[in-house]
Write a protein that binds this DNA or RNA. Sequence first.
DNA 1: TCTGGGGTCCTAGGACCC
DNA 2: TCTGGGGTCCTAGGACCC
Length: 418
Amino acid sequence: MIALLDCNNFYASCERVFRPDLIEKPVIVLSNNDGCVIARSDEVKKMGVKMGTPIFKIRDLIVKNNISVFSSNFALYGDISRRIMKILQNTVSDLEIYSIDEAFIDFIYKSDIEYESLNLVCKIMQWTGIPVSVGISTTKTLAKIANHFAKKISINNILFLDSEKIIDFYIKKIDVKDVWGIGYRYSNFLHDKGIFTAYDLIKRNDKWILDNMSINGLKTVYELRGIKCFELQTSELPKKNIRNSRTFSKDTNDYNKIKKAVSSFASKSAEKLRSQQCVASTIFVFINTNKYKSINENLKLNGKVNLKFSTNDTSVIISEALKILDEIYIPGYFYKQAGVIISDFSVVNQNQLGLFEDVSKKIKRDKLMGSLDYINSVMGNESIKLACEEFENGWRINQSNLSPAYTTRWNEILSVNI
DNA sequence: TCTGGGGTCCTAGGACCC
DNA sequence: TCTGGGGTCCTAGGACCC
């Protein structure tokens, strides 16, 4: 059996932990830059607000229904997530942390899985204040479906799909678009072909599925039929690429601002790269103009470089990224977004040294990067950084409704007046 | 006025080889 | 005029996930 544990309306629930006055009141959390809705409490879902709705389209609704609006506070959500995963680590036998608010698990005691699940739900609520749901079945894809219905119809937020009869009942009820692995393109295609539920889909033959939805589509169908194709991934795999990008708070034609932003993205990418003990050999930089404005200005510019010597040195990655920026930048346009992606990793101590690489210099640079990471880890993020990264709020995002970092910053800790 | 950010995997087609 | 068969590697783009 595989269980999927999923936090209910995770970001909204995190905000409520420190604002219990908002329990059972409508809450939304916005994307970076306060652009669109990325989390909704149940009350807001009932009002018909969809995931990703731009905030300016629901201004009236917010006022009318007195919806509490929060800017996204990833320091807080990340910390609460770590606490929940820690509880799981100490409670279950196998754990795959699938996302910030989801984990696939297997239980130690398998004789009464529903009881185990209930214990877990209660413990997480008591220790962190976050409501969670558990769906259990024979494959990951079915556990996902179990979880989907656990949130909707189960009284205790737990649903166990074990017998074939019960599985059949639910896969006849679920729209293919809500099946894990079937996105909006495939679901439109399937609807056109007269396939509306997961049950309709599994009745199609394998060849048809393979031809139209490729191998992953077929795996999904097998999983729906109760045949395991996706195993529990219990150890964390290193990332294959690292991306840092932002939409600017205001479109900008100021080259220096973009340069500082790109430097800063490159630096953050390098830091993440070092934290997984890797070096990278490909650097990709992109800048985009505003896609919602006139066609003429809808530019997507990008470039990349393959380095001769793989590196995780911040200054090298920044200077290479800036060279690319220099090449792709076209003056006279207003840019909306920029980003840096690094890829083609190898593990630090397995990396072949270049024949013409200056080894003594490299050792010095490695030490320097080590010190930089150490100071930032002890003194707090961005305590020191390179001079080319931004210092003022040149391109920083809008966060006008940001809640305090209650659990990760001493000066923002909750105070209680008695 | 105002539309997020960070990932993975697969496939078709082109370039190149003998 | 007629133009094979078999392979590898790389890349862009498309699909999906949270």
